[in-house]
Amino acid sequence: MVPRRGQGHHHFMSHRNFIWICLLPLVVVTAAFFLLPMAQLLAVGAGGSRGVSAYLAIITEPRYRATLINTVVLAAATTIATLVIATIAGLFLQRHRFPGRAVLIAMLTFPLAFPGVVVGFLIILLAGRQGLIGAITAAVTGEKVVFAYSIFGLFLGYLYFSIPRVILTVMAAVQKLDIGLEEAARSLGASPWAVQRDVVLPALGPAFVASGAIAFATAMGAFGTAFTLATNIDVLPMLIYTEFTLAANFAISAALSIGLGVIAWAILALARSMSGGAVAAAG
C-alpha cells in the first residue's frame, strides 16, 4: 500500500529527476558520438600545415573554389528544376481526381528512401553504356548517346532523388490552400493563369522555400550518387572523399567537410527562419 501520508515521499524519485534520467542517455550519446567528433573534426581541420587558414582554402585555393562553384551551380540547378517539376505535378495531382491517380502518386513518391548509390545505378541503367537512352538513340539515329557519367547524369540523379520528397511537400501545401481564395480571385475576374500567378504560387511560397532548401542542401552533400556517377566530375563530396582516402590529407578534408556542413546547415537554417517550418536535409 502506498503510504497515505507524506512521510514516504522521499523514497520516490521526483518528477524533475525522472525527466533528467530520461534525457541523460540522449545527452551522453549525442555528446560522445556527435559533439565530441565534430569538435575533433574542427580541431583536425585547423591542425594541418595550413593552420586555421585551411578553413579559407575552400575559397582561396583555385581548385577547391572551382569545385565549390561547380557543386553550388549543380545544386541550384537541381533545386530549380525539381521545384518546377514538382509544382506542376503536385498541383495537378492535388487538384484533380481521376482513375489511377493513387497509383500515379505512389509511383512518384515510392523512390523516397532510395539511397544515393541506388539512384546512381538507376541513372546508369537509363543513360549508361548499356542504358535505355543509348539503345533508343542508337536505333533511331545510329549514334549511341551516353551521359550517365557526365555532369548531366549527376544532375539527373539528384533530380531523381529530390522529386519525390518535394512533390510530397507541394501536395501537402496545396491541400492546405484555402480554395476560397481562388474562388474570390475568380469572382473578381482573374483568369486561371492570373489566379495561379497571384494567389496559388504566392501561397505556396513557404513550401517552396522549405523543400527547395532541403533539395539544395541534399544535393550539396550527396555522396552516394556522386560516388557511383561522378568518377570524373569535381563535386565537393567527391573532393573530400579523395582528399581523405587517396591523398590522406586529413586536415584539408576535415576543413572542407566543415565548410560543406556549414553551407548545408546555413541554407536550411535560413529557409527555416523564412518559412517558419521544420526543414531538414535527407541522406
Binding site: L26, T30, F33, F34, L35, L36, P37, M38, Q40, L41, V44, A217, M220, G221, A222, F223, P237, I240, Y241, F244, F250, S253, A254, S257, I258, L260, G261, A264, W265, L268, A269, A280, A281, A282, G283
Partner: peptide
C-alpha cells in the same frame, strides 16, 4: 543539436567519427 545530423552531410559526420575513434 540532435537535429544537426540531418543538415550536416553524412560524409562530414563519418570523417569526424573516424578522426575521433
Amino acid at each position: 543539436i540532435i537535429t544537426l545530423p540531418l543538415a550536416i552531410p553524412g560524409l562530414a559526420i563519418a570523417l569526424a567519427l573516424l578522426l575521433t575513434y
